[in-house]
Amino acid sequence: MNLNSLLLRPPTGLLHPAPVDPDRHTMSRERLLAYLQIKVHHLIQEQDWDSIRIVGGYDRTRGISRYEKSGKLFNTERPTAQAYGRDLLVQAFPGADYVQHYALIIATYLVMTGRPADTVAYQPPGEEECRTALDALDLDLRGDVVIVGWGLEHLAPRSGVWNQGPGYCWQRTQVGGTGVVYLGFRHSIWGDVAGRTVARLARMGAGAVVYVGKVGGLDPGTEPNQWLATGNTSLWGGALVSWDDFFGDYARTQPGVRSGLHVSSPSILLENQDWLAQHAASYAFVDPEIGPMGAAAGRAGIPFGYLHVISNNLASLYPADLSNERHSDVLRRRAILLDRITRIITARLTGGTPLHGAAP
């Protein structure tokens, strides 16, 4: 969707995000601001606007933020922004959760830097718009296990070649006689986008989907970047969702792996102290994607599994959190955990129980 069509679209269904109270968030005020500063587009950080509208739209031809990550193959792209006079249009990859999340980021950042947030509004993308945003994903899958998410450069064979697609890259290999496709995206597959990704992969012939990423821990005794998380149930949309777990009982029995109930949250900004009090007693982990992905896999009739680094702790203050993920010690610890993930996935493929949805 181009800039002109978005600007000319009547501003119906606009919602105004409520900035979060930084003193009630599970991150400290200082760390929350540091997290926001690496996410907010430079045009917002450097000048004021009469209005800021966030919409669903994937356009990499202009308006790229100077604060995008570098030195990585995947998950480097952030929402783009274009000025229209004194108004700013921000385009996030189409997904209801992601558009809301980025609107909350901007509104909270403005409040924390002493500027009014009532200039911020967001327009949730429609279901058809969200679905067609993934039409560019086109792979010939023949019952392959698709490993998607974070850390893929470390998980995939170093000698392999990454094939380039529009907004994504993939690499195919064999592990223990099973076809495996490593699939990474340059843009974020946040929240409901991740669920649609699983649904599309199933339609293209995936036999199973494995998601490798990062979760927040809700147990105060779990130090970040020391443990892996897995499970087969998530609280999503007010209901528990379970799926046919790719790992079965294998991953949860391995050293350094914790299992438990997961809760899906559409935005880190919503995870304040009240949210924590409501969920900490019953749930072990939180992220935006696992619930939608597990539900989509269940509807498609294929196994799904997650094996994540516990990257931060919402219930206790540790040196590492989401504001300093690029620190050298954090990267070193996560590299060790990625090695462990590789060994667990390889063992599952070479010596675990058969995949229910995989081709022979």
Rank of each mutant, 00 (worst) to 15 (best):
G56L: 03
Y58H: 12
D59P: 03
D59K: 04
R62H: 14
G63R: 06
G63I: 09
G63D: 11
I64V: 15
S65K: 04
S65N: 09
S65Y: 05
Y67H: 13
K69R: 14
S70I: 04
T76S: 10
A81F: 03
A81N: 06
Y84P: 00
R86I: 02
L88D: 08
L88A: 04
L89F: 03
A92N: 08
F93W: 11
P94H: 05
V99P: 07
Q100M: 15
A103P: 09
L104Y: 09
T108K: 06
T108D: 09
Y109V: 13
M112N: 10
M112I: 14
T113H: 08
T113G: 12
P116W: 08
A117L: 09
A117R: 10
P124H: 00
P125S: 04
E128K: 02
T132R: 05
L137K: 05
L137F: 01
L137C: 04
G143R: 05
I147Y: 00
V148H: 06
W150K: 14
G151A: 09
G151L: 05
E153I: 03
L155N: 07
L155M: 09
N163T: 12
N163F: 02
Q164C: 05
P166C: 07
P166V: 11
Y168I: 05
W170T: 03
W170P: 01
Q171M: 14
R172S: 13
R172Y: 00
R172E: 14
T173G: 00
Q174S: 13
V175N: 00
Y182A: 10
Y182R: 01
